[in-house]
Write a protein that binds this DNA or RNA. Structure first.
Ligand SMILES: [Mn+2]
Ligand SMILES: [Mn+2]
Ligand SMILES: [Mn+2]
Ligand SMILES: [Mn+2]
Lengths: 224, 224
DNA sequence: TAAATTTTTTAGATTTGCCTAAATTTATAT
DNA sequence: ATATAAATTTAGGCAAATCTAAAAAATTTA
């Protein structure tokens, strides 16, 4: 099935909002799409008729399986094009979103799959967001402070909030840097310090204060 | 100024038809755009209001300078994208036109100029048609049989209509192949044979029959 | 040149996506 | 439990791009 750019934008916006709130409100959508609530109501009726979503007046909206599939294809296109713009054409990561907002509506399936290969099947777009694969599968990435990382959940360091010399000193001592993969193996109640393991290194213990300043990302895709 | 995809398609179609016939008819346009004459008339009024063309009811249509400028930008985008699809993504030259028909409407100027550089500023698209430069300048390419090439006009061999062994034998003897650049230096009335010069080679004489089977392209841009 | 034919325009509708204003429903705060 | 406020839908319209059918103009033919 082929949908208008406008419909694709709606479905994509609903998908994104749905990642936060279970059910998507008319007002939230109007804001996300820079349009008016009355226009949203109009469109929701059309999208419902096309079975892309479930909709009961006043009760919000939820994508169907088909709706999610459509959304993921658009997100795939958007993020692959962003990757292309940055990696091949030399755009800055902050200037590609608008252009991708147009490119994501180019319909050729073959085009996007070839582009994916041409780019070397990248896993993330320039903003670090995951790119769905050709089947629409996309890992769910959670970002939290290391303090809130579930036990035994492997994760990557993505940022360090405190850049003091003292902090960086401690980090280098512990062989921790951006991109380091680790997991939390124990949590000690007494001082809330954490035992962690960096793959291929011995277990080490770090303070609550250090952990609070380390931010990590991990794949939290529900296993089917 | 930004125009709808539909308007861009109209302006581009008018430009192309105008290369053949001085003035563009409503019916010709309807056929080119797979639409109905009544729809064309409607649109012509709108395009006239936007000063992209001159239009008098029943008297056909002609692009203004502004209209030509717009057309050339779209043609530039169309042909650069076709080049990208073939050279970078490995598409066949026969499958790219439709996709380029969509891509040509992506608006970012910076995108297309970067794409141009990324592709190495190609001179022609995969069908051999010239690509307008960033200022909208496009060489006028004439394609004729070598027989009709004007004297002293440098041109490139683009195709050979007879593929017989005898023909190919003669061609290789004369060091003529696709891409060879040459010019006609004399025409002999007696047997209509031609004297030609391949750059960097001695003058040679070829028969009318051979010349009739060689097709050439040359830049016939009017010098201002 | 008058008739027949073709081309083009006009008239009147339709679809899509959007808007404002008004009505209705749901949620929140006394 | 009201009353007030907020969210949402309905009603009525508008602009873009298209269509069909009918009228008008231009061209061709006999
Ligand atoms: Mn983006
Ligand atoms: Mn978009
Ligand atoms: Mn083409
Ligand atoms: Mn087009």
């Amino acid at each position: 099935m082929k949908y208008s750019s406008s419909k694709e934008n709606y479905v994509k916006a609903i998908f994104h909002i749905q990642q936060e709130e279970e059910v998507v409100s008319t007002n939230a959508l109007a804001k996300a799409l820079s349009t008016k609530p009355a226009s949203v109501t109009d469109m929701l009726k059309k999208l419902k008729a096309q079975k892309l979503l479930q909709y009961q007046p006043y009760k919000g909206v939820k994508l169907t399986a088909e709706g999610k599939k459509v959304a993921l294809q658009i997100i795939r296109k958007h993020r692959l094009w962003e990757h292309f713009l940055v990696e091949k054409l030399g755009f800055g990561w902050e200037e590609v979103h608008e252009i991708a907002e147009e490119l994501e509506h180019i319909s050729s399936r073959k085009l996007i799959d070839r582009l994916d290969d041409f780019l070397g099947n990248p896993k993330t777009d320039p903003h670090g967001d995951p790119i769905p694969d050709a089947h629409g599968r996309m890992p769910v990435i959670h970002q939290t402070s290391l303090l809130d990382l579930p036990l035994h959940q492997p994760a990557d360091i993505i940022s360090v909030s405190n850049q003091s010399t003292a902090m960086l000193d401690l980090l280098s001592h512990n062989k921790i840097k951006i991109g380091t993969r680790l997991e939390v193996t124990r949590k000690f109640d007494f001082d809330r310090s954490l035992e962690i393991r960096i793959s291929g290194h011995p277990f080490i213990t770090i303070s609550e204060q250090l952990a609070a300043n380390l931010f990590v990302a991990y794949d939290a895709t529900p296993k089917t």
